[in-house]
Amino acid sequence: MSFTREASRAIRSTFVLWIIGAIIYPFVMIAVGQIVFPYQANGSLIKDSQGQVVGSALIGQPFSSDRYFNSRPSTTSYSTANPAKDDAKVLQTGVSGASNLAPSNSALLERIKGKDDPDPSKRVEGDLNRLKKAGVPPTADLVYTSGSSLDPHITPEAAKAQIARVAKARAISPQELETLIIQNTDGRFLGIFGEPGVNILQLNLALDALKSAS
C-alpha cells in the first residue's frame, strides 16, 4: 500500500472524527439538554414573580436582613464585589472556595474591618453574638462557611432556628413559615445521597410571595 494512500486515509479519518467529535456530538448534547433538561442546561436560573432572573439555584446569595432567612457565611462574599473596586479580583477570576485555614489558625476567626465595623473583632464570635442577640439558636452552617463558599443551601434546622426572628419582623405566623421551609426543602439525591437542604433564594422568594398574597 502506497504512502499516498495511507496519508489520504489518515486525513479522511481525522476529518470524519473531527466532524463527529467537534460538531455533531456537541450540537446533539446541546439539543438533548435543551429538550430534556432545559432548566439545568441553562444554569438552573430562578425568576421572581415578574419573570426577572434573580439568581441561580446553584449559587448562594447573601441575605442578612431580619426580614429574610439568612444565608450561610461566605469567604468570598458570594462574589458580590463592587466592579468599580474589586481589589481581590473576585469578579475577574471567579474565585470561590474555603479559606484553607487550619482550625488552629487565629486568622480563621478574624473579621475584616469595614466601614460599618469600626472595631475589628472575631468573625465567628461576632456571628455568634449577632445570632444570640436576634434570638436565633446558632447552628454550624449559620456560623461556618462551606467548602465552596458559594453554598445556596442551609440545613432545615438552620432555617427553623430563624423562624421566630422572621415571624416577628414580618408579622407572619410561625406555622406559615414552617410550611414554607418544608415546601422549599430539597431531599436527598435519589433518596440516599447527601442531606436535606433548604435553598435560601427560593425560600426568601416564597416568603416575599406569601407576604404579597396576604
Results as ranks from 00 to 15, higher is better:
Tyr25Pro: 00
Pro26Lys: 03
Phe27Ser: 10
Val28Met: 12
Val28His: 01
Val28Pro: 01
Met29Cys: 13
Ile30Ala: 12
Ala31Gly: 12
Val32Met: 07
Gln34Arg: 11
Asn42Ile: 02
Asn42Glu: 13
Ser44Phe: 11
Leu45Ser: 08
Leu45Arg: 12
Leu45Pro: 07
Leu45Val: 13
Ile46Trp: 04
Ile46Thr: 09
Ile46Phe: 04
Ile46Ser: 03
Asp48Asn: 15
Ser49Lys: 15
Ser49Glu: 15
Gln50Gly: 11
Gly51Pro: 06
Gly51Trp: 07
Gln52Ile: 10
Gln52Asn: 14
Val54Glu: 04
Val54His: 02
Gly55Val: 09
Ser56Asn: 08
Ser56Ala: 10
Leu58Phe: 09
Ile59Asn: 07
Gln61Ser: 11
Gln61Asn: 08
Phe63Lys: 05
Ser64Thr: 15
Ser64Ala: 15
Ser64Cys: 02
Ser65Trp: 04
Asp66Met: 05
Arg67Asn: 14
Arg67Tyr: 07
Tyr68Arg: 11
Tyr68His: 13
Tyr68Gln: 13
Asn70Leu: 09
Ser71Arg: 01
Ser71Asp: 04
Arg72Asp: 11
Pro73Ile: 03
Pro73Asp: 05
Ser74Ile: 08
Ser74Gly: 07
Thr76Ile: 11
Thr76Leu: 07
Ser77Asp: 10
Ser77Cys: 08
Ser79Glu: 09
Ser79His: 05
Ser79Gly: 03
Ala81Pro: 01
Asn82Ile: 00
Asn82Asp: 15
Pro83Glu: 02
Pro83Gly: 03
Ala84Arg: 04
Ala84His: 03
Lys85Phe: 01
Lys85Ile: 00
Asp86Lys: 00
Asp87Ala: 12
Asp87Ser: 10
Ala88Glu: 06
Ala88Asp: 05
Val90Lys: 09
Val90Phe: 13
Gln92Lys: 13
Gln92Ala: 15
Gly94Cys: 03
Gly94Ile: 03
Ser96Ala: 14
Gly97Pro: 08
Ala98Cys: 04
Ala98Pro: 02
Ala98Val: 01
Ala98Trp: 04
Ser99Tyr: 05
Ser99Gly: 06
Ser99Glu: 10
Ser99Val: 06
Asn100Thr: 09
Asn100Pro: 01
Leu101Ala: 07
Leu101Arg: 09
Ala102Val: 03
Ala102Cys: 06
Pro103Trp: 07
Pro103Met: 09
Ser104Lys: 06
Ser104Arg: 02
Ser104His: 02
Asn105Pro: 01
Ala107Tyr: 07
Ala107Pro: 00
Ala107Cys: 00
Ala107Met: 10
Ala107Val: 02
Leu108Cys: 10
Leu108Ile: 14
Leu109His: 13
Leu109Gly: 15
Glu110Asn: 14
Arg111Ile: 00
Ile112Asp: 12
Ile112Gln: 14
Lys113Phe: 00
Gly114His: 04
Gly114Arg: 07
Lys115Pro: 07
Asp116His: 06
Pro118Trp: 02
Pro120His: 11
Pro120Leu: 11
Pro120Ile: 09
Ser121Asp: 10
Ser121Glu: 10
Ser121Asn: 08
Lys122Ala: 15
Lys122Leu: 15
Lys122Gly: 15
Arg123Cys: 01
Val124Ile: 13
Val124Trp: 01
Glu125His: 04
Asp127Cys: 00
Asp127Pro: 00
Asp127Gln: 12
Leu128Asp: 09
Leu128Arg: 14
Leu128Lys: 14
Asn129Asp: 14
Asn129Cys: 01
Lys132Thr: 15
Lys132Trp: 10
Lys133Ile: 05
Ala134Phe: 12
Ala134Cys: 03
Gly135Lys: 05
